[in-house]
Simulated assay, not measured.
Amino acid sequence: MDQQPDYSKYSEQELRQVRKHIDADRYPERVAEIEARLTALAAVPRDTTSVDEDLSPVTSARLWRRAVAFVLDFALLGIVGAIAGACLYEPLTVLGPWGRVLGFAIATAYFGVSQSHVGDGQSLGMKVLGLRVVTASGTPLSVGASLLRAGIFCLSYFLGSLPSAFSGLNAWVASALSMLIFGVGACSTYLLIFNRKTRQTLHDLAVGAFVVNDARGPLALPTERVWRGHAAIVTAALVAFCVAGVWMALPGSLGDMLRVRQAVMSLPGVSNASVMLNYGPQNARTLSVTAVTDASAQNPEALARRVAKAALENYANVDQMKTVTVTLSSGFDIGIAQVWRSVNYVRTPREWRAR
């Protein structure tokens, strides 16, 4: 539920700014209160000694300030993650790819609550940099709106690889979903850099939020609308990311790697996997398969052979590889912290088949 603003504390400039942006159909009683307040202020003799004009206006924050605030916030989350990893290592290793979901929940809760009216619109990084998240009327976001904004902000980094972690999901669908989630992050970055009119990015626009300098002067938010070309570019980019995801799953190098990954993840004792194609001297190629193991993996050497077999059966040109490297890793990755313990097995395709 929206918090009722106390307009008696607003200056005349702030009231006029709010009146310009407010949804009159949704908040007719607020419009009436604002107009009554403006009328009352107009009847009061002007105080020529007022220092309101000398105060710095509340304007949209610059890109570098937002970036530094984020770095500070993520450093704090990293400290929390490191402490959690030291105290809860064993439980976290059981999560496998779901560890990223835990990290997503922690980060979303941190940003969502601190940047709502509960934290007066400021996370720790924003407090240090003198920034604040507000609505068009200058008030802090509700907790629900702020959590939605934070969820969109954290989505790409934490959950981009999650769809492909489901071995039963169609490879085309998993790849398209992963690329779409990645595209959300890419489009947010694009808007952050190029939307110079309102300085809003994707998660800001979703809830009508602005990141402003924490000043005491009159509200001076941008009055211009976002350029329509940005909407067209973002829409086209998201469609392109989905198409790229489908293309990556087609038969060929990338499609084969996706199939190897899903085959490895279906093995008992494996909770997650990744596949890479590396190039060495004289264009020598190496297929590298990393399998994240759980507590049920009792025989590492036998599991390494099963992982290599999955690679040999699902990668069409595997015999052209100089070596196939299998890495068995145990540990956790929750996005804000990760710890891995690994062992490598490096053999040629022929050597793997001989075992």
Rank of each mutant, 00 (worst) to 15 (best):
P5W: 14
Y7N: 00
V18S: 08
K20T: 02
I22V: 15
A24W: 09
E29V: 04
E29A: 08
E33R: 07
R37Q: 09
D54S: 10
R62C: 10
R62L: 10
L63T: 10
L76H: 00
G81A: 14
A82I: 05
A84T: 02
A86I: 01
C87G: 06
E90V: 09
G96K: 11
T108F: 11
Y110V: 10
Y110G: 07
G112I: 05
S114D: 01
G121E: 02
G130K: 07
G144D: 11
R149I: 12
F158M: 08
L159I: 01
G160M: 04
S167L: 08
A171V: 13
A171W: 07
G183L: 12
C187G: 08
S188V: 02
T189W: 04
L191Y: 05
R196W: 01
K197P: 02
K197S: 13
H203P: 09
G208W: 08
F210P: 11
L219H: 04
T223N: 08
E224Y: 03
G229D: 07
V234L: 14
F241E: 07
F241D: 00
C242A: 15
P251S: 10
L254D: 15
L254Y: 08
V260I: 14
Q262S: 13
S266K: 04
S266I: 01
L267G: 05
L267Q: 13
V270W: 08
S271H: 03
T286M: 08
T286E: 14
D294C: 11
S296Y: 00
A297I: 05
P300F: 02
A302C: 06
A304S: 10
R305L: 14
A311D: 12
A316F: 05
N317V: 00
Q320P: 01
S329Y: 03
F332K: 00
D333E: 03
Y345I: 09
V346Y: 06
